[in-house]
């Protein structure tokens, strides 16, 4: 199985940060995802949207990264929203019981609307 080089992009919208992981979340390069979120948290951002449209594979290492972000946001009473997840990703998160620790939206704009207005 080929592994796709993992990279992270991000942008800010209002008081939220949107993170775009790209590639397989299955090795140490996934740390960049934690670092990227950490940078925004350091700047006082408490709302983070992770758009998974370009990541459809995650393994235990990737899950560990995600746990870290969930924990970091919990510590500052922040919110993590996950969007554009493939079925495989959703199933994995569900099976591991991660869904209770995040808000899940079909697409990024839904998450942003929710974060702005507090409703769907």
């Amino acid at each position: 199985m080929k592994s796709v080089q993992f990279s992270v992009a991000s942008r800010r919208e209002g008081d939220a940060a949107i993170i775009y992981p790209k590639g397989y979340l299955n090795n140490l390069s996934g740390e960049n995802l934690v670092i990227e979120c950490g940078i925004y948290i350091g700047k006082g951002i408490t709302k983070i949207v992770v758009n998974f449209s370009e990541t459809d594979l995650i393994n235990s290492i990737g899950i560990s990264m995600l746990l870290q972000i969930i924990e970091d946001l919990k510590n500052i009473k922040g919110t993590i929203c996950c969007t554009n997840m493939s079925k495989l990703l959703r199933d994995t998160f569900e099976m591991l019981g991660l869904m209770q620790h995040m808000l899940v939206f079909p697409v990024e704009s839904d998450a942003l609307t929710y974060l702005k207005t507090g409703k769907l």
């Binding site: 090795n27 140490l28 996934g30 235990s60 290492i61 899950i63 560990s64 990264m65 746990l67 924990e71």
Partner: peptide, 14 residues
């Protein structure tokens, strides 16, 4: 480092 991530990810440990 990877080994530790695999383990914490598998056992959902913080």
């Amino acid at each position: 480092q990877s080994v530790l991530y695999v383990i914490t990810g598998t056992f959902l440990a913080n």
